[in-house]
């Protein structure tokens, strides 16, 4: 659920398509040129708003944010599993 939401967001906002085959979940956003330094700020705003979390400076690194899988794992660590959880936690 979380993964699908992130995938859709990246496809819609950075690849401008709904073609699921356009993005592998472990593809690096930076290495593939999907997202640049400003783009990652967009991703952070999205994650904070959508999942009700706050991302600290030391979490803003490639290991947390550079692929769909990285973000999914990162969100799991932050205690986010489904959007419903977020609603409950807010």
């Amino acid at each position: 659920m979380v993964e699908a939401k992130i995938r859709d967001y990246i496809l819609e906002n950075f690849l401008f398509t709904d073609d699921q085959s356009a993005l592998d979940s472990d593809e690096s956003f930076l290495d593939k040129g999907i997202i640049d330094s400003t783009g990652i700020l967009e991703v952070i705003f999205f994650l904070e708003e959508e999942f009700g979390i706050s991302i600290a400076d030391n979490e803003m690194v490639r290991e947390s944010l550079d692929s769909v899988n990285n973000i999914t794992s990162f969100l799991k660590l932050k205690g986010v599993s489904t959007p419903e959880t977020v609603t409950n936690s807010q």
């Binding site: 930076l30 700020l41 952070i44 400076d57 803003m60 690194v61 490639r62 944010l65």
Partner: peptide
């Protein structure tokens, strides 16, 4: 740090 980390990668 984000911007730096990503600028660095960019």
């Amino acid at each position: 740090n984000t911007a730096q980390s990503y600028l660095a990668a960019f």
